[in-house]
Structure formats: structure tokens, C-alpha cells
Design a binder for these strands. Structure first.
Lengths: 196, 196
DNA sequence: GTCTATACGCGGATAGAC
DNA sequence: GTCTATCCGCGTATAGAC
């Protein structure tokens, strides 16, 4: 309450990671996508980047810290997308901006986004992570508007699941980022009956 | 090649399970949804139904057999849905029927369908399960038609992900089955530009 | 069919040398 | 920062009694 910072909303503050920490996180993300979070051991991560388990523990105190660091790769960008959308004047414009930003993010970081929304361990983990929960509440409010009827709820649920699921779907494996991005946007706007 | 059966297409043949086996499968499904497949131990399953691990091993030789049995709960119904759709005369009618059947199934067995499509271990498992792969190929062909352009691929990927993801989404937790079913169908048809 | 008991390996995590 | 070595618990799986 004493500093100027206290006035600004709480944000994610991803620690700035060393080069080795970043390698650990990237290795973890690949393995999480392949074997699931719970099926990925610290030994597997250590082998991938060519060090021992103990070296990993020097960089992160627990496995949970690695999971969180992996999630934060995307969480900061999701929060930024919600910020940008909320700054728009009209609701429908905010919705359009948010959908476009979410799709950009999902296409750019296909694996991470899918892990966040689909891996059972990651989902449980994030449910207890307050900053994440707050961002998701803002995101859903933007997608649904204030009066959340059944159709709005189902549409928002379908959209987020569709984006996260589609980007790693076998059917779109051969599409380049730009093609995938544009088709996803096109179809997402159709789902929400927004102008294309 | 010698019997009459050889002429009919290969189908799933879920073994008929004893009452205790069925209890094991149902308990496994609940735990898989909560902790993920890899995060669910035989001990947890045994505790849930009130027996010891050894008793579980009497019913199923390995954990993989339990995973398969759990998957088959839904796989047989998916195959039946594809059969029904393929019997339709027109392509668009086949697509409508398939989408409606898939949504019915997903709403009825929300947890199972989501596990099948989202759990990393289950996904890897089913990729190597030939009968499943074959059914999915037929399903995608029905959804996309023969000329699989980028839009058709992305639309099919979004639809399957959206259905599986939406039915267990926190936003729709309070919707009863009938409301969820009807909204899902309505929005799925809009995504595919089919008559409602 | 269910139990107790046990084998064996791998999981996360720590201590202490270099 | 990375290593070797080690702790302890839990994972799958099996043997054999009741």
C-alpha cells in the first residue's frame, strides 16, 4: 500500500530466467506435450538437455516450479491479450480483438497452449493459481458479455476448447502457421456470428 | 479367412465384463478425469472400490488393459455412430447425423469423451490402437468430405476438440444434459453452415 | 476372488564433493 | 553449476495362502 506499484493491478511476474533455465523449460514443454505433465520425470528433462537430475534441482526447487514456469510462457501473453481487448470501446470490437489475439498466441505456441487447457495435471494446477483464475474470468466475461445465457456459455466453452485442441490436431499438422491462423479466425468469427 | 465372420468388417469387441470389472472401469474413469491416466495408480482405483491392488490384477492383467477397457466404453458407440452416418444417402445428411450422434454421446458420457481426446497418455495409447485409428479416419472423412482443403481440415479439428472440451468445461457445469445438447448442436451446425 | 507379503524399479528430493 | 551418491515412498506387478 506504500509504493506506486500498489495502485496497478497484480500481474504475472515471470522471473527472468537464465539460459539454462530456459532450456529446461523448453525441454519440459516438449515432454509435457508428449507424455503429459505427470508422465514426465525430472530424469527425462535432465536427459534431454544433457545434465543430471541434481542440476535441474539447482535451477528449480521443485517440479511444481517447472510446471509454473512452463505455464507462464503463455500466461503473460494471455493477460496482455485480455488487457488489450478490455481497452476497446465496444463489446463486439473487444471480442473480435480478443479472439484474434488468442488465435495468434495459440498458433505461435501450439504445444504450450494445448497443454495448458488439456493436460489434467496442468488444469488442476492452474485452477489453484489465482492470477490465472482471474485472467480466465476476465477472458470469459469478454467472450460472453455480462448476461451469460446457455448459448453464450456453450459458445465460449467451445471456442476456447476448439482453439486449444485444433492447433495440435493431427488433421492440421501440415498447415503452416499463417494458413492455420487465418482459417481458425474465419471459423471462430463464424461461430460467434461476428463480421469476417 | 475360413469363417463367415471374416466377411464382415472388423469391429470393436468389448469383452463382456463382470460386475466387479465394470466397477473397476467406472472408478478408473472418474480418477482418470481427475488426475489424468498417468497420475492414476491401481492403488487409487482399488481404494475407490474397496479392494486391494491384487484383486484388481485378478480382473485385468495390466494397467493398459484397464485403459483400453475404459476407452472401449465409448469407442463402440463412436463406431456405431459412424456406421449410421455412412448409411445416409447424401453427404450433408450423413454429416448432420454424425454431428448429432457425437454430441449425444459426448453429453451423455462427458468425462469419458474428454479423457479420450485430451489426456496425453490416452491419446498416445489410442494412436497405436488400430481399430480406433480406423474409426477416426472414417469419422474425419465424413466431416470433411473427400477433398480436404484447409478450411475443412480446420473445421473438423475444431469441431471434435470443441465437443470434447466443452462438455467438461467449467462454464457449462451447471447446464443440464438437454440444454447442453441442444446448444452444442445448434452451434456445431452453425460452424459447419448446416441447416438448424 | 480376495487377501498379505514382497520384488524391483523409478519417482521426487537432498547432501556434499568438485 | 554440475556431479555422484543416497534417501524414502510409491509405482507396477507377482507369489502364494485362504
Amino acid at each position: 500500500m506504500s509504493s506506486a506499484e500498489a495502485a496497478s493491478p497484480i500481474r504475472f511476474r515471470p522471473a527472468s530466467y537464465s539460459a539454462t533455465q530456459s532450456r529446461t523449460i523448453e525441454a519440459a514443454l516438449v515432454l509435457f506435450a508428449e507424455h503429459g505433465v505427470s508422465g514426465t520425470s525430472l530424469q527425462m528433462i535432465a536427459n534431454t538437455i544433457g545434465v543430471t537430475k541434481a542440476a535441474i534441482y539447482h535451477q528449480f526447487k521443485t517440479k511444481d516450479e517447472i510446471i509454473l514456469a512452463a505455464a507462464e510462457v503463455v500466461l503473460t501473453r494471455m493477460e496482455a491479450a485480455v488487457d488489450t481487448a478490455e481497452a476497446e470501446k465496444s463489446r463486439s470490437r473487444a471480442r473480435e480483438v480478443l479472439i484474434a489475439e488468442l488465435i495468434d498466441l495459440a498458433v505461435e505456441r501450439r504445444r504450450v497452449v494445448s497443454i495448458l487447457q488439456r493436460d489434467p495435471v496442468m488444469v488442476r494446477f492452474l485452477e489453484k493459481h489465482e492470477p490465472f483464475v482471474r485472467v480466465m474470468e476476465r477472458l470469459y466475461r469478454l467472450l460472453m458479455g455480462d448476461h451469460a445465457g446457455a448459448e453464450a456459455r456453450v459458445a465460449a466453452a467451445m471456442l476456447t476448447a476448439a482453439i486449444a485442441g485444433a492447433v495440435i490436431h493431427p488433421l492440421v499438422l501440415n498447415l503452416d502457421d499463417e494458413a492455420l491462423r487465418s482459417e481458425l479466425l474465419h471459423l471462430a468469427l463464424r461461430l460467434f456470428q461476428l463480421p469476417d
